[in-house]
Design a protein around this nucleic acid. Structure first.
Length: 485
RNA sequence: AGCGAGGUAGGGUAGCCAGGAGUGCCCGCCGGGCUCAUAACCCGGAGAUCGGUGGUUCAAAUCCACCCCUCGCUACCA
């Protein structure tokens, strides 16, 4: 039994969860569930990032203290993940006491290794946008976002010697090719690191809402450093269950924050004398109805609304099925409906319904010889999931669904009687049973409903082969209802 | 500008790394079969100069060069 530590990023709580948060969390959940199915000892982390200037400002706007404000937003995340059937083992908040302790100890170690020095942060700042802008981003000396003039600001700050770790990072990428995943995105990072790395400002004087920088109490720890360390505080580092689950098997992140996880994070860990994680997997982004998602565009999709309308499993299915994990995709309701009607209702739902109808009408003994196991390749699906390829894994399951439907037609099951019919039903029920096991990480509710209708015990990956069918079939309506447009 | 990813039938994709008849899948379209099934399922068919040009090779979607187009990233904006 292997230990498996998987994480999502912790989400910034200046707003309620959107479709992107839901996507990352759901994909991680599928992997966590898959590993449990394999019998692994899984530790699955998600949580919230609650410090920093933006939260401070958002709190002021609501007339609350920062803590009151985050306490009011965090339940929305917790509830959302409940709705999504997310099976996280821990929900980490950066305002937790444990986290505070871990961050301080983590920084102490970096400080002791001589990688922190006092300096001056200098940069361009757009006051109305409240954003720092780099030299490169400037457009004719003006803010690239709003076009207004920018101010030069100077601020005392403590720096981390990131530049020092350039070669060690390149070595890490070379020795552990899986670290930068998916591999087609790896070159981007490698080339940028080769170009050289600037040291990083890791504290702020002007911000109050954050973890105290013990080495100089006029400063607080900058939010991203604070946030990254949560992967360790969830394990109660440096004690706790660290030895067992660290290094993490995979950090699931969106490609926008890949840099923090593939460059800054491992460098910080090296400095603190901690092993880097085994893999950082950067997934793609969703557009919505073909357009970039954003608050300014007013097209942010509320995942809870979608679930209310279509159900949890259809959305989970869509997440895994609409695009290969890693790549970008487009979220649209019409595409979601097309998948529900064409795949969940017509392929899967129909297969189960028609098979169970045949089974219930049949009075004889359900037994026979395996025929529908041809092409069933569990090892292949294991390999795909090992590569975090949920997309092709589901496709492989769907091949089973389609060939089972074909089987009924080819055998003309409705014309058969007696032993011949018993044999066909045996093959169908075994095939469906295996499909339901394989689907359990992706559509847990649906998997469970199929299992109930088959009347079989809960099973693991080892039962994904044809044996004797031991179940009491009891049909219970359609798995999915057609969505009328 | 630099770096990266991609351009394959009406749409969406796989195949490319380790060249071998345009080979596969999904949706859509056309025709047929069937009635166990939510007008569901199954079979067959039409539809592609594999972005362009040149090169390597007995053989190129696949390798190389150049060009065109689309998208992403460019660091302290989680």
């Amino acid at each position: 039994m292997a230990d498996y530590y998987i994480t999502t990023p912790i989400y910034y709580v200046n707003d309620k969860p959107h479709i992107g948060h839901a996507y990352t969390t759901t994909m991680a959940d599928m992997l966590a569930r898959w590993h449990r199915l394999l019998g692994d000892n899984v530790f699955f982390l998600t949580g919230t990032d609650e410090h920093g200037e933006k939260v401070q400002k958002a709190a002021e706007k609501h007339g609350k203290s920062p803590k009151e404000f985050v306490d009011s937003v965090v339940p929305q995340f917790i509830d959302a993940w409940k709705t999504f059937n997310i099976t996280n083992d821990i929900f980490m908040r950066t305002t937790d006491l444990q986290h505070d302790k871990t961050v301080k100890e983590f920084i102490r170690r970096i400080y002791d290794s001589g990688d922190i020095y006092k300096g001056e942060y200098e940069g361009w700042y757009c006051v109305p946008d409240e954003t720092f802008i780099t030299e490169l981003q400037l457009k004719e000396g003006r803010c690239p976002y709003c076009g207004r003039t920018v101010n030069k600001v100077k601020e005392e700050s403590y720096f981390f010697r990131l530049g020092k770790y350039r070669q060690r990072l390149l070595d890490l990428y070379e020795k552990h090719p899986g670290f930068l995943s998916p591999k087609y995105r790896a070159m981007e990072t490698i080339n940028r690191v080769k170009e050289g790395l600037n040291d990083l400002s890791i504290t702020r004087r002007t911000v109050k809402w954050g973890i105290e920088f013990k080495q100089d109490k006029d400063h607080v720890v900058y939010v991203w450093l604070d946030a990254l360390v949560n992967y360790l505080s969830a394990l109660r580092w440096p004690d706790g269950t660290v030895g067992r689950f660290w290094p993490a098997d995979v950090h699931i992140v969106g490609k926008d924050i890949a840099w923090f996880h593939t460059v800054i994070w491992p460098a910080l860990l090296m400095s603190a004398g901690v092993e880097p994680p085994k893999m950082v997997f950067s997934h793609g982004w969703w557009t919505v109805e073909g357009k970039k998602m954003g608050k300014s565009l007013g097209n942010a999709v509320d995942p809870i609304d979608i679930i209310r309308k279509y159900g949890v499993d259809p959305l989970r299915y869509y997440f895994a099925r609409e695009m290969p994990f890693g790549e970008d995709g487009d979220f649209s309701e019409s595409k979601l409906i097309a998948r529900i009607n064409g795949e969940l209702v017509d392929d899967l739902g129909n297969l189960v319904y028609r098979s169970l109808t045949l089974a219930e009408r049949f009075g004889g003994e359900i037994k026979g010889t395996p025929e529908l196991d041809k092409g069933l390749d569990i090892e292949r699906i294991k390999a795909l999931m090992g590569n975090l390829d949920t997309f092709n894994a589901i496709e492989a399951v769907w091949e089973r669904v389609r060939c089972s439907n074909r089987y009924i037609n080819e055998k003309e099951a409705w014309k058969l009687r007696g032993e011949q019919l018993g044999n066909v039903i045996y093959n169908l029920l075994e095939s469906i049973r295996i499909i339901s096991i394989l689907l359990s990480p992706f559509m847990p509710d649906t998997s469970e409903r199929i299992r109930m209708q088959l009347g079989v015990e809960k099973q693991g990956i080892d039962q994904c082969r044809f044996g004797e069918f031991r179940g009491k079939v009891k049909k219970a309506g359609h798995l999915f209802e057609k969505v009328k447009e």
